[in-house]
């Protein structure tokens, strides 16, 4: 890994002093390719019927743990070769598509999919790009990219299970990536997906480790373990600090009551498996006064909506007691 960083720092030096070295953008591009470390896997990040929230969530990444990327910059600079990401990439149009097609041709990349795949209107509810004048549907792109990927990671509940686009009457016949492709997929569900969970999966793939999955193809280590890796109750309610049975916390009868159990207000914690507790928008597990103390929904008296589950959002009211 150190050689990756050294090479990339060298490249950064060249980039910063490009004028002095007489390098233009094209020259720098060639240099970057020459310096690309074979150990840095190519990652292709596709967005379909999504809200971009999982990408935004990835940008919220922060870590102070040794050996982990500390921010999204470190992910891109030191961990992976993120050749295609529509929200972030500098290039556009056919040049952007060319990066994708080049990766596709080489094969063996990690395919990350954000968003569901709509099948209605012959797939035309979502066009991924145009190539040589032809509009290519997201459905086609996912199928083609999945066929040549080393690993497929569905980021967020839409890509994993269909999510909100597939709710109700499912007006666009949206499906998750596994349903579409029939291939093995690692589902990192959540609406949005937690950035630590996404990067955890990438790190495991970098290390060549096998990821144990639950019956919904989610990593057991992410949805049923503590942050130190030891096992924990899978059900959120069973580890909730507001669990009345375990901690004697009163049950809230209406909103605005601070610190109470939210089960009567529609909390789906008893039916949700995740390690959400103090894991959002900060350093997972850090609590005040630690810097970047993390947060979670229940911490602000908001019921869990079960957004990591296959059943999310489902037809039932979020405001009535939930029975699965």
């Amino acid at each position: 890994m150190s050689s990756v960083i050294t090479r990339r720092r060298f490249f950064r030096y060249c980039q910063l002093t490009a004028a002095a070295l007489g390098l233009d953008a094209a020259g720098l591009g060639l240099l970057r390719k020459a310096l690309a470390n074979p150990n840095a896997p190519t990652v292709v990040w596709l967005q379909g019927s999504s809200c971009t929230g999982c990408s935004i969530s990835l940008l919220n990444l922060i870590s102070d743990r040794i050996g982990e990327p500390a921010s999204v910059e470190a992910v891109a600079a030191e961990a992976v070769n993120l050749v295609f990401h529509p929200t972030l990439m500098a290039t556009a149009g056919e040049d952007a598509v060319a990066s994708l097609l080049e990766a596709q041709k080489a094969g063996g990349y990690v395919l990350v999919v954000e968003g569901a795949v709509p099948l209605a209107f012959g797939g035309r509810a979502c066009i991924a790009y145009s190539w040589r004048g032809r509009e290519v549907t997201f459905q086609e792109v996912v199928q083609e990219c999945a066929a040549r990927a080393a690993k497929i990671v569905s980021v967020g509940t839409c890509a994993a299970f269909g999510g909100i686009p597939a709710a109700g009457a499912n007006p666009t016949q949206a499906v998750g990536v596994q349903t579409l492709t029939g291939r093995p997929v690692i589902n990192v569900s959540g609406c949005p997906a937690n950035p630590d969970w996404v990067v955890w999966v990438i790190v495991q793939l970098l290390l060549g480790k096998t990821i144990q999955l639950d019956e919904n193809s989610r990593p057991i280590a992410l949805y049923a373990a503590k942050f130190d890796g030891s096992s924990a109750p899978a059900i959120l309610h069973d580890k909730c600090p507001r669990n009345p049975g375990l901690h004697g916390v009163p049950i809230a009868r209406q909103f605005g009551e601070d610190g109470h159990c939210l089960e009567q207000l529609g909390c789906r914690g008893p039916f949700t498996r995740a390690r959400c507790e103090a894991a959002w928008n900060g350093i997972a597990g850090a609590v005040p006064p630690q810097p970047h103390a993390a947060h979670w929904c229940i911490g602000v008296n908001a019921p869990c909506h079960g957004c990591v589950e296959k059943e999310f959002p489902g037809p039932k009211s979020f405001y009535e007691p939930y029975s699965g």
């Binding site: 490249f11 953008a25 970057r32 891109a76 993120l82 050749v83 972030l88 990439m89 500098a90 556009a92």
Partner: peptide
């Protein structure tokens, strides 16, 4: 050009 790594490279020529 923003950062000297993908996905911020390559990019369209922004001039000098």
């Amino acid at each position: 050009s923003a950062l000297p790594v993908a996905p911020w490279l390559p990019g369209w020529r922004a001039g000098n």
